[in-house]
């Protein structure tokens, strides 16, 4: 098995089928600490399945996933859940904020779930909201803020626990160009300054241009574009 040296998260020869459909058919992936890697590909190519496998949400039928020296694919559910809470952060296209909580409470939520006291959690959350330039909506609920602000709140929430890997699945998919670019600038700046690696799934080239390199997934197979030329 070939795992690139120094990689924080790496997958080799992943296979995953949903019924007769091969979502992943020998896909590979690797990312180094602090690196931003775009995963691109047409709809239905398997890029979201790859992200879900890498994040330990979906178990591949076969293949190996190594995270920080441990075999993710061999962990039990409880260990993988714990890892997701402590080491991974997630940003999706939409529908990720709890509508009944204020934006500040949303950002503080992962810390609260990890047992941090309210005052400390909200203080850390506010720092992240300032970095993402949304501290002004701290007291508002998600339904009361714009799409761009809501997404920046979601990014703040994904980074509040200091994850080592941030998984972003079409994080700007529901935003217009201007808001999408601002989210990407702030997301990549915040992740880089925190030293987090970012797995960025996108079908938009202008979003992928914020990454350090790209991996293209087609028919469940991956190709590292850095090794193309």
């Amino acid at each position: 098995m070939s795992i690139p040296e120094g990689s924080l998260l790496a997958a080799h020869d992943l296979h995953k089928a949903y019924g007769p459909t091969n979502a992943l058919d020998g896909a590979a992936f690797s990312i180094h600490p602090g690196e931003v890697v775009a995963v691109m590909g047409p709809s239905g190519s398997g890029k979201s399945t790859l992200l879900h496998c890498l994040a330990g949400i979906v178990t591949p039928d076969s293949g190996t996933i190594m995270y920080n020296g441990h075999e993710l694919s061999a962990m039990n559910d409880a260990d993988r859940s714990a890892l997701r809470r402590t080491d991974f952060g997630f940003v999706f296209q939409f529908g990720q904020l709890v509508p009944e909580l204020s934006c500040l409470e949303n950002v503080a939520l992962p810390l609260r779930l990890n047992g941090t006291g309210r005052k400390q959690a909200e203080s850390t959350a506010l720092t992240w909201m300032q970095r993402l330039e949304v501290e002004n909506v701290a007291k508002q609920r998600p339904g009361e803020v714009s799409g761009g602000q809501g997404q920046r709140v979601a990014v703040a929430r994904s980074l509040v626990t200091g994850p080592r890997v941030l998984f972003a699945d079409e994080p700007t998919g529901a935003l217009d160009s201007l808001n999408g670019e601002r989210v990407m600038e702030l997301l990549t700046d915040a992740a880089r300054s925190a030293g987090a690696a970012v797995v960025l799934v996108t079908h938009e080239a202008r979003v992928a241009a914020y990454s350090d390199r790209e991996v293209v997934v087609r028919d469940g197979k991956s190709r590292d574009m850095e090794r193309v030329v």
Partner: peptide, 18 residues
């Protein structure tokens, strides 16, 4: 392969512009 090589070159320039 030709298309991928070109794609890679395009993205390289897009990164520099970004």
């Amino acid at each position: 392969d030709i298309l991928d090589t070109q794609r890679s070159e395009h993205l390289r320039l897009m990164r520099a512009l970004t």
